[in-house]
């Protein structure tokens, strides 16, 4: 589904990513693991077309990623970045603004289902009326996770989405994602819970050398 072939990316003359190779099959679950500042986030940004590789190619369904199919990739993707300060307003307003996007126009706003998802991640109903900004980091992460699970996308690009959650909640989130057979998951995380999750492909990044475990 997605393939990185010898991809390199420079930032101010030094390589943040060098000859990086990665193959993602549909429905696979991949963890990109490693210290901060070694280009993990760069992989997601490249995949979403936020930046372009300096060398090498990225393929989506055997087609080189370009300014046409990048929009297709974004349409089938749920992207939760490290920066979760994504909007102002109440939680419900933000969810509605996401649902209002043309890409989500066929998704029926089944509030009951959303409430169930929120409950599953231990967010009670009152959270909908709260100002998103006033929530804690962990609550924001769970709001976004639940919302994007509700949207039922094909690809999930998750950048440190469990960093502020307690261990029990981390496991709950990880298991939810791993259990969804049809979803393609690419997760970036420091968390041990992801590393030890059963059946996950771990890509360990160590500086510029990249090993496939």
């Amino acid at each position: 589904m997605i393939e990185f072939k010898n991809v390199s990316k420079k930032f101010q003359d030094s390589y943040i990513l060098k000859n990086f190779n990665l193959k993602i099959e549909e429905g696979s679950k991949t963890l990109i693991y490693g210290k901060s500042g070694i280009g993990k986030t760069t992989i997601i940004r490249l995949l979403l077309g936020f930046i372009k590789p300096d060398e090498g190619e990225i393929y989506y369904n055997n087609q080189r990623l370009n300014s046409k199919n990048i929009w297709e990739v974004r349409r089938i993707t749920a992207y939760i970045g490290q920066n979760i300060e994504i909007a102002n307003g109440t939680v419900l307003e933000i969810i509605k603004s996401i649902l209002k996007l043309k890409v989500n126009e066929n998704i029926f706003f089944d509030q009951q289902k959303l409430i169930e998802l929120f409950n599953f991640f231990e967010l009670d109903k009152t959270v909908f009326e709260k100002e998103y900004e006033s929530l804690s980091g962990g609550e924001k992460q769970r709001v976004l996770i639940a919302t994007f699970i509700f949207l039922n996308k094909k690809i999930y690009l998750l950048d440190e989405v469990t960093s502020s959650l307690d261990r029990e909640m981390k496991l709950k989130v990880i298991n939810y994602f791993l259990d969804k057979k049809e979803w393609t998951i690419i997760s970036i995380s420091h968390d041990q819970e992801w590393l030890s999750a059963p059946g996950i492909n771990v890509i360990k990044m160590e500086g510029q050398k990249v090993g496939n475990h």
Binding site: L48, F50, R74, T77, Y79, G81, I86, L101, V103, L157
Partner: peptide, 8 residues
């Protein structure tokens, strides 16, 4: 970019 990455 958050919105763009999510298909906006």
């Amino acid at each position: 970019l958050f919105y763009l990455g999510n298909g906006a």
